[in-house]
Each structure stands twice: as structure tokens, then as C-alpha cells.
Amino acid sequence: MAAKKQDIIAKLRQDIITWEGFRPIQPGALSNFGLGQLENAFPNQVFPTGAIHEFLSTKPEETSACGGMISGLVGKLLQQGGVCIWVSYTRRIYPPALKLFGVDSDRVIFVDVPRQKDVLWVTEEALKCEGVTAVICETHNFSLMESRRLQLAVEHSQVTGFVLRKDVKAITTTACVARWKVKPVRSKLRPGMPGVGHPRWNVELQRVKNGRTGHWTFEWRNRNFHEVIDQQQLPDLRQYA
């Protein structure tokens, strides 16, 4: 009897996940993003593609770190082909640097919208287009209604959307699958070595639909995410220059 109850609950959980826009993994679809422990935070233990992810940043340094994280994920997605559309209002992304994150910049189409209010229109059109693999939208304001529209668009087309919010003052409720906050942290080199190491970020999952929140530290090295388990503060032994 108890076992039966458990089965029913497990089945209902699965149903809820499907209703909320998560699809069961397609055979042959990309399932490993190299995110290690972080992937366990998501339902089915897989990074959800075909959904909207929201990234928060308050400073340009964080925007850049978020950009790095998104580029890393998009680079993996683009291995299956397709193009990426980068919609922004005030763009600072430097195309040659994207290759360092595994994205061929010639497969990214930048749409630099002169007016803020057109950003979401372009994003929604792009998300509805099935030839597109990923859409990155750099915006400032993002309301619940707008996020719902985008989420409905991707549920049909299975495009992965990343909304990178810049200069966020207040966190609002959104219909996104996950809310990320990526902050740069000091890189680490071998003790005593001068210079700057590989990009290193503190990745925080503030909200995941049907998943668990948490924070992790990742380093981008050899075109892959590497989880850094050791969370010690850097020793101040490092010499300046």
C-alpha cells in the first residue's frame, strides 16, 4: 500500500514537471553541460533546454560574468548546429572573445535594438523561430507578463532563451524556469605565481522550478566548466604582478 502511494506521488510529480514546461529528455539531445553537481539541482537532473533562464546582474563586472556563463552554455548548445541570436539594447559584447567560450561568433547574429521596448518583441519573434538554437536577450526591465509570453513561445518551439538583466534594482516574480546570479570571484593560480588565472564565478541558483537552489563555484578552463569544490579564501601570499 505504502509503495503504491509512493508510486502515485512520484507519477504526480512527473506530471507537474511536464505541465510546467519541462519536456522529458529527447533521445540524442544534449544532456551533459559539464556543470557537475549543479545539474542535480534541476528536475530530472538535466539542465533544462527549451526554457527561459533569467540571469541577474547589478554591475558591469557581473554582466560580463553572466555573459561568460551564458556563452559557455550556448557554446555547448551550438555544437548541435543552429544559430544564436543576441538581442540587446546597449551592447558591449566583443565578438572575438566569444570563441574563448566555445562560441563561433560568425554563428551569432546580433540585433542591436535602438529602443528598449523593441527588445522583447525581437526576442519573442526569435524564440518562436525553430531554426534558432538559443536566444540571448539583454534587457533591463522584465515583468511577469513578459516572461510568461516568452515561456509560452519556447514551450512550442523548444528554443532555449537566456534573459540577461542588467542593473537590476529589484527582483520581480517571473515565469522563468531558473533564476541565476553569477558573480566573478578572484581567480586562483598556483601559490606564488603572478598574474590572473582562469575566469572563476560564483554561480547561485536563486530559484528553480521544481528543483533545489544552491550556490557553486565554477572555473572556465579548456572550454569546459570545472566545479571548484574548495571554497577557501585565496591566500594573500600571491604577489602583486
Binding site: 544559430v83 541570436i85 565578438p95 572575438p96 561568433s105 560568425d106 551569432v108 547574429i109 546580433f110 540585433v111 542591436d112 535594438v113 535602438p114 523593441d118 518583441w121 525581437v122 519573434e125 526569435a126 523561430c129 525553430e130 531554426g131 534558432v132
Partner: peptide, 21 residues
């Protein structure tokens, strides 16, 4: 499909907003 998407964007916002490098 992508070309058609970009045509729509160009039609509404302008061709000069679309960049590829």
C-alpha cells in the same frame, strides 16, 4: 527560417540593427 525571421526584424526595426561578424 532564420533568414525569414531576420527579414521580419529588419522590416520592423531596420536592417542596420542586424549585425554579424
Amino acid at each position: 527560417v532564420v533568414a525569414e525571421l531576420l527579414d521580419r526584424v529588419a522590416g520592423r526595426i531596420g536592417k542596420e540593427t542586424i549585425h554579424r561578424y
